[in-house]
Design a protein around this nucleic acid. Sequence first.
DNA 1: CTCGGTGCAAAGCTTTTGCATCCGC
DNA 2: GCGGATGCAAAAGCTTTGCACCGAG
Lengths: 165, 165
Amino acid sequence: MPSSPTAQNKLEEVKKIFTAYLERKELRKTPERFAILEEIYSRHDHFDVESLYISMKNKNYRVSRATVYNTLDLLVECDLVTKHQFGGNLAHYEKSYGYRQHDHLICVDCHQVLEFCDPRIQNIQNMVGELLQFNIQHHSLVLYGACQRTDCANRKEKTNHNTNG
Amino acid sequence: MPSSPTAQNKLEEVKKIFTAYLERKELRKTPERFAILEEIYSRHDHFDVESLYISMKNKNYRVSRATVYNTLDLLVECDLVTKHQFGGNLAHYEKSYGYRQHDHLICVDCHQVLEFCDPRIQNIQNMVGELLQFNIQHHSLVLYGACQRTDCANRKEKTNHNTNG
DNA sequence: CTCGGTGCAAAGCTTTTGCATCCGC
DNA sequence: GCGGATGCAAAAGCTTTGCACCGAG
């Protein structure tokens, strides 16, 4: 296992993992499934179904939304992709193989997404699981707040936090 | 401020808070808004919009989904109600006045929702906010796992966690 | 050849919106 | 009485489903 795989190496690794998963589940190794996996791992940030679909369409790849949804479910199940529900009704996804466990911080004004790591979350997860007799499989932690970028899209009177009426 | 208010006292308190909020925002104090608030505070658990709507209809209260959605937004904004997005596309709500800050633990099989408190989350929130220059307003932490109840609705082979393929 | 997977479009479900009516102020 | 709020229903937006065809095994 390489300690710092190149993007190409990583792609090969995730393909192998996906292949093994499909074989174990006796599912077919269709070109669409691997094309979607490649597209996801060529992206650098969070994405939703529609933007993934559009990207593939723009590359003249013939694929349907149904297949994108179906394949994302498979990729989530074999831990190559993580699904997020950042407050709204629109699901967001991100590749997750070889990336450090992290959580998210979202600006309530401009909706930018930042990531952060904190090992204490793992401890909380372990402790609560033991306390309440749950086999905890994963978690979702999202912090919501106002960023301080001058170009924040929805900038109100952020400089002064007066709460008087 | 009573240290352990009865349900009735609590209801009066939240009504006052809601009234003050409506006055400050120059919104009208309609009977529908207060009926929805009462219905929510008479409930004991998490709920979605449809079940709240049905409850009120069953009590022969004339109310529309639009008003329920609208009022929930107001109640969330004045911190009397909390909105959750527990993984799916269906928003869940819960009353939040006078309850200790808590987070959630959800069984991926039977979907029961448990609550837990851990003060470390507040620390994480403060630290990350300072580190990344965000004014953090609130957070959402959900742990997902398998409960160990014998009557778990979707019980598979939970007793043995073999992962050999 | 078989039958699981795909593309397409229609349906489903939650949430939002438009409009006439109603009622708090 | 004015204008915001409501009820109802239609529309919007994301996701799932049905069906005929395709192609992996």
